[in-house]
């Protein structure tokens, strides 16, 4: 049915970071290397899918008045599971993401999707939504980490490719170390959103503007 559309929306049109400005803290904090960005993106995707499915299953049982509290408990449960799994299986990732793994609990993307979508959708739809939003988030994280890692430390894919060493594309002394700091996070995200806005206005012919009003 409309699963295809859900996917397109999550990845491009309603991208959680670029359009809805959700989950900015983790977006900026972990995108210092591809390894961190990818790890964070995939963890959030897994948690988002699980939470969406779970909340969609329970949507008739959860009383309306305490729904937010129930969502928070469900999310916190899954986050704890993923946190412990990462600590056991990928200690390097767990170490470098640090406090930002437990902080997925307050990542607005997850509670936002639970409230806006999963609480009133069927299970397959909720799963598709979780997957597409998660992948949209991961895509932004990957783009930002590649840019910041390359310009900020001169490497590509350290910890992921080339047996974990990555490639040093130019000597580190030429790299702009500030890009790894919050300054670089704000700057990179600002430029990325500006680029998206530019592409959108360029493409926006009359019919796509109508479409934009619908959501």
């Amino acid at each position: 049915m409309k699963l295809g559309r859900i996917f397109r929306e999550g990845l491009v049109k309603n991208n959680p970071v670029l359009s809805l400005l959700l989950g900015l803290c983790s977006t900026m904090a972990v995108t210092t290397s591809l390894f961190n960005g990818l790890g964070m993106g995939l963890s959030v995707t897994v948690i988002l899918c699980c939470c969406n499915v779970c909340i969609s299953l329970l949507r008739r049982l959860i009383p309306d008045s305490v729904r937010i509290a129930v969502y928070v408990v469900i999310i916190a449960g899954f986050v704890t599971v993923v946190d412990l799994l990462l600590q056991a299986l990928l200690p390097a990732l767990s170490e470098s993401l640090g406090v930002f793994i437990p902080l997925i609990v307050v990542n607005c993307i997850i509670i936002g999707r639970a409230e806006a979508f999963a609480s009133r959708a069927s299970v397959p739809e909720a799963f598709a939504d979780g997957l597409s939003q998660g992948l949209g988030y991961t895509a932004v994280l990957v783009i930002m980490s590649v840019v910041r890692e390359l310009l900020g430390s001169g490497t590509f894919g350290a910890g992921v490719f080339n047996g974990g060493a990555g490639w040093q594309l130019f000597p580190e002394e030429y790299a702009c170390s500030y890009l790894i700091l919050p300054f670089g996070g704000f700057l990179t995200l600002g430029c990325l959103i500006a680029l998206v806005q530019h592409l959108r206005t360029r493409r926006s012919s009359p019919e796509s503007r109508e479409e934009g009003g619908a959501c």
């Binding site: 400005l21 500030y178 700091l181 919050p182 300054f183 670089g184 996070g185 704000f186 700057l187 995200l189 600002g190 430029c191 959103i193 500006a194 680029l195 806005q197 530019h198 206005t201």
Partner: peptide, 22 residues
Amino acid sequence: PKCFEGTPISLITAALIALAFM
């Protein structure tokens, strides 16, 4: 510029404040 209006320019402003706080 048009494409920087709204969120992007606020983020860049935040970046510049972060630079000063460095």
